[in-house]
């Protein structure tokens, strides 16, 4: 899956399931959209479904530091790359 395709899916999830209004790629998720750690864990579950594999606990811990949608895309890209190696 390309970064753009993944971005579209993430944006759709954030709008449909997390009730975001007009999310921007560089918005601060917490400050601009009230996205908290519980949301982060729920989103990780949805990303796992898209990717078809589960994250390790260490990978999930790293995700807790994510601040923007671009961070999410970078994070998933890095994990996908490390798994294909």
């Amino acid at each position: 899956m390309t970064r753009d395709e993944f971005k579209d899916k993430i944006l759709a999830i954030l709008v449909d399931d997390f009730e975001f209004e007009e999310p921007g790629l560089e918005d601060n998720l917490r400050d601009d959209h009230g996205f908290d750690s519980i949301d982060a864990i729920e989103l990780l579950g949805k990303i796992e479904l898209i990717l078809g594999f589960s994250f390790t606990r260490e990978e999930k811990e790293k995700a807790m530091g994510i601040r923007t949608i671009n961070d999410i895309l970078d994070y998933v890209e890095a994990i996908q790359q490390s798994r294909t190696k």
Binding site: S37, E61, M64
Partner: peptide, 10 residues
């Protein structure tokens, strides 16, 4: 869920 609490929360 900052720092050391991230693992506990997850």
């Amino acid at each position: 869920s900052e720092g050391q609490f991230a693992a506990m929360m997850i």
